[in-house]
Design a protein around this nucleic acid. Structure first.
Lengths: 206, 206
DNA sequence: AACCATCATATCAAATCGATATATCGAACG
DNA sequence: CGTTCGATATATCGATTTGATATGATGGTT
């Protein structure tokens, strides 16, 4: 969860530039994250990434009548101020972010990072961006996730068998079990696709 | 999500007393929450609930030989002092919490609260504790959740049809769609059970 | 022209997480 | 017999995330 947002933002910027508000919708529509990320997360995260040099703000293209007066937006870390304190800047200017070369490096590192891939959300996020991974790394991630899920499945199955639970609690557990089973089917499909693709490149490998 | 932990803790204490560490495991095993709640959440939450008078700490039963003599443990922080400065309490004492009458009131209020039942986790949590709700409130919650899910389903189906997505992103979306469909089946089963139970109490109602 | 939904950025307090520190206890191992 | 290991147990810290709220622009509708 820690770096979920960093991965999501950088992953979206790998493709093309985005502004904050747009990232929020894209995380839902392209990365499959069910809950909307709050603005209180996204703007601080963008500032964080900018400070670290992984993204940079470029003033919105598609300029409308603005007259921005003096080119005073070269202010270093006063990137916010440049926009806010400028009196002549009307409209709702969009702050468009672009990923830097260092950001691209950071992204692939984070994406393949062995740490914290346990929860369902961060795994789905990684898979949604899996085209940026090498085939072998994809398989590693999938297999590790598979192991976690199998373990969790047996745990939950025994919980679901607990006879001290009332009807509702047991129903919740049984439903959760089905969810994990669905996840496992998905993983297995992805794994077999991955392996058949590998074969097509090295069919003679015994 | 905001009060998820409060609901979870109070819900567990409705049944019997618990200490912090135990609550963590029970949230997984009895309430079906897949991720382990961190200690950094649970102990502050218990203090919070204690301050508000919804729970009270009772010294661990099952007392063992202690004798600790003088309270030389140099309590520094306030919250520690309560227990540690108490002389006579030795070992790794477990701080067992009990729910108060006001806590029971608060619990049913939170559980039936119309706010923030949108996300999957908080809904599952509520259902796991649904035996404390009236049948009609259960139906209200279920129906509202159903509406949300149907809406989300159509959104995600159109996302999954987006041809600009690569194979992996589309696979994630398709999998997410299946998850929501599974949720919907579950809700519908619960709803029909709920309604057939209602009928048995009022079979003549046309 | 008034209204409202959507777009867009931003900030704040409170909640939560992940890591870490500390300590007890029982079991396993040699 | 010692010691190491894993599970039990409480607590705190900094960083991250949420949910709420403020503010304003833009565009469509009646």
């Amino acid at each position: 969860m820690v770096r979920m947002l960093d991965i999501a933002i950088l992953g979206l910027l790998m493709d093309r530039d985005h502004h904050g508000y747009e990232i929020r919708t894209q995380v839902r529509d392209r990365l499959g994250v069910s809950a909307n990320i709050s603005f209180g997360s996204i703007y601080p995260a963008l500032n964080r990434l900018e400070r670290r040099g992984f993204v940079e703000a470029v003033i919105a293209t598609e300029a409308r009548g603005n007259a921005l007066s003096t080119g005073s937006l070269s202010g270093e870390r006063a990137s916010l101020r440049a926009l806010r304190a400028t009196p002549g800047l009307g409209r709702r200017s969009r702050k468009v972010y672009r990923i830097t070369p260092r950001g691209r490096e950071e992204f692939v590192t984070l994406l393949a990072d062995p740490a914290t891939l346990d929860d369902s959300r961060s795994f789905s996020l990684r898979m949604a961006l899996a085209k940026y991974l090498t085939p072998s790394l994809r398989v590693v991630l999938l297999e590790r996730r598979r192991i976690d899920l199998v373990e969790r499945l047996t745990e939950m199955q025994s919980s679901a068998r607990n006879e001290q639970l009332d009807t509702y609690a047991r129903s919740v557990m049984a439903h959760a079990v089905k969810g994990v089973e669905l996840d496992l089917e998905w993983i297995d499909n992805l794994l077999s696709t991955e392996r058949s693709n590998q074969q097509s490149f090295a069919p003679e490998a015994k």
